[in-house]
Structures are given as C-alpha cells and as structure tokens.
Amino acid sequence: MHIDIITVVPGLLESPFSHSILKRAEDKGLAKIQVINLRDYAVGKKKQVDDYAFGGGAGMVMMIEPIARCIEALQKERTYDEIIYMTPDGETFDQPMANALSLHQNLLILCGHYKGIDERVREKYITKEISIGDFVLSGGEIAAAVVADAVIRLIPGVLNDETSALTDSFQDGLLAPPVYTRPANYEGMNVPEVLLSGHEAKINDWRFEASVRRTQERRPDLLNKQENGGSDTASNEK
C-alpha cells in the first residue's frame, strides 16, 4: 500500500510514522507513507497557501491553486483508489471503513488547516471525506495519522499475529472482552478460572459473553446498530 499525505505542517507527521507498527510496515516493504509539503507547490517568496475568505469572516482558507498543482503532480506518478479529505463534515471513520480502505493500493489524504479548503477542491478532486469524530482539531494531520494507523495495521503481515486484528474491538460489532496476563493472582485479584482451563470452546464462549456484556454496559448503541441492520454514517475535523 502507498499512502501520500498532503500537509502544510509535515513536521506533525514525523513521529507517528517513525515508530512502532507503522515503521515496521515500512521496514517490511508492506506500506509506504509519503508526507508531501504543500508549500513546495506554492509560488512566490512566501510560498503562500492560504488567503482571506470571499464574503469576509474570521480565519483563512487554503487556496485551490497549490492544492491542484500538488494533486495533479502526484496523479502523474500513480492512480489513487481514493483521494481523501479530512474534514469535520465527512463520514465518521469506523472499523468497517478501515477494513474497506485496507483493501486499496494507493490512497491520497489531504489535511485541512485554517478554516478549511476552497470548496472547488472538494468538487473537483476529492472522492471521500472523512471525520474521526464530532470535534475540531487545529488541522487534519493527527486525523490522517489515525486513519493511516488503523488501515495499515490491517495489511496482512504487518502484525506479528495476523489474527490479532480480527479480534479487535468493533471487528464483529462488539467491544473486545477483558484480557489478562501473569500473574494469575495479584493481591487477591484473580484471573477468571475459565481462562486458565485450557478449554478452547469454553474460553471462546466466555470471551463472547464478556464482549456482549461490556458492549451492553459501555456502547449499547453498537448493539442497537446491529439490531437495526445498518450503520450510522453521517457524523463529523479539519
């Protein structure tokens, strides 16, 4: 998988992609993440990428011209399955969306900043708009890192144990069950006996029941979504 991320502050993305699973994916040759500085496509001494909004109002707007030059230059190098814009009014990112995106080969993510981007960019280039929640960030870089992390970890071979991703929260519409490790007894707090039994069927039953119980307690909306046979899609990041 190849992911290109367009940003006006590339330094914000240096750390997330230099450690842990994302770094391992690059080292294994399973994913390539390229951070593109939008100012490289701006003109003039100041490399301006934003301007005042027509009609007035507070805040600056990212200009169409440098974004268009950047996207079109990148499109000459590869064909993108999706050109994604991180925005508060996008579709709320969730595990099914991460699963779907992980099947693609090339993704381009545009990080918003200031008061957002000129609407004509969205009309001409963007194929998918994503939000990571109903709140506003200073820019889309952190949100883009969230999406990249969630997607890349699903690529076969990235995790040492590929079944790990399949048992994550939300993969089956439920939260993950509680987990334990040694010691089996800590200051009188014991691990459930069934997990020490070695009986795989009973352990699986316990984990499923614990998942359902935890979901009922903490995220009953997930169970309601399953009962309704659909998913909520309209929620809302700069």
Rank of each mutant, 00 (worst) to 15 (best):
S131A: 13
V179P: 00
Y186T: 03
A165Y: 08
V191M: 01
V179R: 13
D221A: 12
S138V: 03
N224W: 03
L196Y: 01
D149E: 15
V151C: 05
I155C: 03
K202F: 12
G229R: 12
D172I: 15
S235P: 00
R122A: 08
V179T: 14
V136K: 07
A210E: 08
S235H: 14
A148H: 10
I132S: 04
L137R: 03
R182M: 08
S211M: 05
V136M: 07
D172K: 14
V212R: 06
G229T: 09
F135L: 13
R182P: 11
R213M: 04
D161M: 10
Q226D: 01
N190P: 00
N228C: 10
D232N: 14
L223A: 01
Y125Q: 04
G230Q: 14
R214D: 04
T233R: 13
G188S: 01
E129V: 15
N236T: 12
G133H: 10
A148R: 11
K225D: 08
L174N: 04
A201V: 08
R122I: 15
A150C: 08
M189G: 00
L137V: 04
G229Y: 09
A144F: 05
K124P: 01
D205G: 02
P192R: 00
T167W: 05
Y125E: 05
I152S: 00
D134H: 12
G157F: 12
L159T: 00
S138K: 09
D149M: 04
S138L: 14
F170G: 02
I130K: 04
L154T: 04
W206E: 03
I155D: 00
A210Y: 00
N204Q: 11
K128N: 06
P192L: 12
S211C: 10
P192K: 09
E129I: 14
R122S: 09
G229P: 06
S131G: 06
P177F: 04
R218P: 02
D232T: 14
D168M: 07
V158A: 05
V146H: 01
L222P: 07
G133T: 06
I155V: 15
K124F: 10
K202N: 03
R218S: 07
N160F: 00
V194N: 07
V194P: 02
D168Y: 12
E162H: 14
L174Y: 12
L196I: 08
T233Q: 07
Q216P: 03
V179I: 12
V158M: 05
R153W: 02
L196K: 12
G198L: 10
R207L: 14
P183I: 13
G133Y: 11
R213P: 00
T127N: 05
G157K: 12
V158R: 08
T167M: 06
I132C: 02
K225I: 07
G230R: 15
G198N: 09
E209R: 11
Q216M: 13
E200W: 15
E217V: 02
V147Q: 03
L195P: 07
S169V: 06
V179N: 11
L174A: 02
G133P: 10
I126P: 03
I126R: 02
T163A: 08
L159D: 03
I126H: 05
L196V: 09
A150H: 07
D134Y: 14
